[in-house]
Computed example of a mutant assay.
Amino acid sequence: MWQYMTPGIPDEYFVRGNVPMTKEEIRVLSISKLRLKEDSVVWDIGAGTGSVSVEAALISKKGVVYSIEKEEEGVRLINENIKKFNVENVVVVGGLAPDALLDLPSPDRVFIGGTGDKMYQIFDIVTTKLKEDGVVVVNGITLDTAYSAHHYFKQRLFTVQTICVNVSVSKEAGNKTMMISQNPVYIITVKREG
């Protein structure tokens, strides 16, 4: 289904429903910030449709991606997208984080696309279980999420970089082309110092 070595599967390739999905351009940047290796153990927390899980699994072919999602519809969509893209190294974990994370193996990389109202509890588990050279990428659409994530990890002596991404996508309007802007997204990249 996806024959390229780079991330960036078009959104319309995924089976979608009424759960959030990390859009293509944001997904490309977020996956790039994860610095995935061929054998990475990845947690995708708040996986939605599984778009990040699928792309991570295609890159980390010898690794395992744990796709954590609390919504039943999301779990169904993740399973459909796993089949559609023929990835066999994704383990779907239906449940609410942070409890759903407790029995998972320690990750090399963590993508956090959603935390609900359990942000700090999830961050606590992630920082406890993250491997020594691990990387965490948090996506947020509010200033509150960006500030909270940045502050939390900085206080725990992680190296933190936050970028704000504004994407506009072209759309035909009669015989003209206009640019339609999407919501800005904060991408917070976290690494252990030293």
Rank of each mutant, 00 (worst) to 15 (best):
Q182S: 02
A57N: 03
K191N: 11
L101G: 06
E80T: 06
M1A: 12
V167L: 09
I31S: 01
V136W: 07
I68M: 03
F111V: 05
V92F: 07
H150A: 14
E193G: 13
G8K: 06
D108I: 05
L96I: 14
S148K: 11
A57Q: 06
V92K: 03
Q182I: 10
S148D: 13
K171L: 13
I122F: 01
V64T: 15
D117V: 13
D11E: 04
G17I: 11
L102P: 03
D144T: 13
P20V: 11
I187Q: 10
V65L: 08
G95W: 14
R16K: 15
V91Y: 04
L101F: 12
P107L: 01
S60A: 15
F85L: 03
N18K: 05
Q161C: 08
R27A: 12
I122N: 00
Q182L: 15
G113R: 04
V87W: 00
V135D: 01
V19C: 07
L102R: 07
M119D: 02
T49Q: 10
N166F: 12
I180D: 11
E73R: 05
E38A: 06
K84F: 04
I188D: 06
V75F: 07
D108Y: 07
K62A: 12
P107G: 05
V19H: 01
V87R: 00
F111D: 04
E25Q: 12
P105E: 05
N86S: 14
G113Q: 09
P20W: 13
K33A: 12
S67Q: 03
N175E: 15
D108C: 04
I9A: 00
A146P: 02
L77A: 07
A97I: 11
A57C: 05
R27T: 10
K131H: 08
T22V: 15
N139E: 12
K129S: 13
V190A: 03
V136Y: 07
V54D: 00
T177W: 10
E172H: 06
N86W: 01
M179C: 02
V87Y: 01
T145K: 08
T115D: 04
A57H: 05
G113L: 05
E172G: 03
V64F: 10
D117Y: 07
K176C: 13
A173Q: 02
L102S: 08
G194Q: 09
L96D: 15
D117W: 08
T6I: 14
K61D: 02
R156P: 05
V138H: 03
W2P: 02
P184R: 08
K33L: 15
E55V: 07
K33H: 09
F85T: 06
A57V: 05
S67G: 02
G116D: 01
K33E: 11
C164T: 14
T159S: 11
L157E: 15
T162E: 13
K62E: 15
K61H: 08
H150G: 13
F158Y: 15
G113I: 10
G174I: 09
L58M: 14
G94D: 14
V28T: 12
V19D: 01
D103F: 01
R35T: 11
V54T: 04
F153E: 02
N183P: 07
V42F: 02
T127W: 03
M179H: 07
V93A: 12
P107D: 14
P184M: 02
F85W: 04
Y152D: 05
V91I: 15
I9S: 03
A47M: 04
K37E: 14
M179F: 15
G8L: 13
R192W: 08
A57M: 03
Y13C: 11
S148M: 04
V137F: 04
F123N: 02
I187T: 08
